[in-house]
């Protein structure tokens, strides 16, 4: 009896793995069938095979790597600047009440404005330069990381701080070790949210006008009615942010190393 139940459980497990493995291929297959069935306009809704050809062309033309590195540069540098600033100010506002009274109300007013809404003013300020694109990503990332750090710092166990005080921990070490590491579990959650935000803001930044980049390529392809290229660009963007999120999750697990 029990072996029968066990077998049934493993069968169910294998079945769900199999279905999981078939999920994407099945979707692509159905898409191919529908696009080729002439129910829909294949120019507007190209089959995956056409998309694949467009992507290969994109890679062969040499533009793909230029676009990829332009987008990666904006996301990475923007993310690094925004999160560094967010963490530093979060530690300070979380720890020093006066500074918090000075900055928190301002940050709470600015935080809910979607970064995309800043595109027009960013174009006025920075034109179509790289600085403007970085500004948008930095802006998008900063507030999330600031808030996560600020809350994390306030949640640091007061007992830890007292213990550190009793041991003669200097002020600087108190901030850079006890407070920062005490808040790290919260900060890491903020950073992970920031990874996806940096991709959202990248889209806004490149749609606002650029000379290279994955989203820029999507927009150009749209203007030329290259729907295969548009969809290939979307797929590349999806894959890129998926990889970024997963690798960040792996890093985050190790960042809080004592758990």
């Amino acid at each position: 009896m029990s072996t029968g139940g066990h077998n049934r459980a493993t069968m169910a497990g294998r079945l769900s793995v199999l279905v999981g493995a078939l999920s994407v291929p099945a979707f692509v297959g159905v898409w191919e069938l529908i696009a080729r069935s002439r129910i829909v306009n294949a120019v507007l809704f190209p089959p995956p095979s056409t998309v694949a050809v467009a992507v290969l062309d994109w890679i062969h033309s040499g533009q793909f790597f230029g676009d990829l590195s332009a987008s990666l540069f904006r996301v990475t540098v923007g993310f690094l600047i925004g999160t560094t600033g967010g963490i530093m100010l979060g530690v300070l506002t979380g720890r020093f009440r006066l500074l918090s009274s000075l900055l928190s109300p301002l940050f709470h007013i600015l935080r809910p404005i979607p970064p995309i809404a800043f595109v027009p003013i960013v174009i006025l300020w920075f034109g179509l330069s790289e600085a403007g694109k970085l500004f948008l990503v930095v802006w998008g990332v900063f507030f999330t990381v600031w808030l996560a750090t600020h809350i994390g710092v306030q949640k640091v166990d007061r007992g830890l701080i007292r213990a550190a005080l009793m041991l003669g921990t200097p002020r600087r070490q108190m901030l850079s070790e006890i407070i920062l590491l005490g808040a790290l579990p919260y900060i890491v959650v903020g950073l992970r949210t920031a990874v996806s935000i940096s991709f959202y803001t990248l889209v806004a930044a490149e749609l606002a006008g650029a000379f290279a980049g994955i989203v820029y390529r999507i927009e150009i392809a749209q203007q030329n009615m290259q729907t295969g290229q548009v969809m290939g660009g979307l797929a590349a963007l999806g894959l890129l942010s998926f990889v970024a999120d997963r690798s960040f999750a792996a890093i985050a697990e190790r960042a809080v190393w004592w758990r």
């Binding site: 213990a163 041991l167 006890i178 790290l184 004592w258």
Partner: peptide, 24 residues
Amino acid sequence: MVFQQPHLFPWKSVRRNIAHGPRA
């Protein structure tokens, strides 16, 4: 001072926890 809760630094090994004071 020893508190009711140990309040050890969770990111430090036993050895580093004890060495914290002298290092500080």
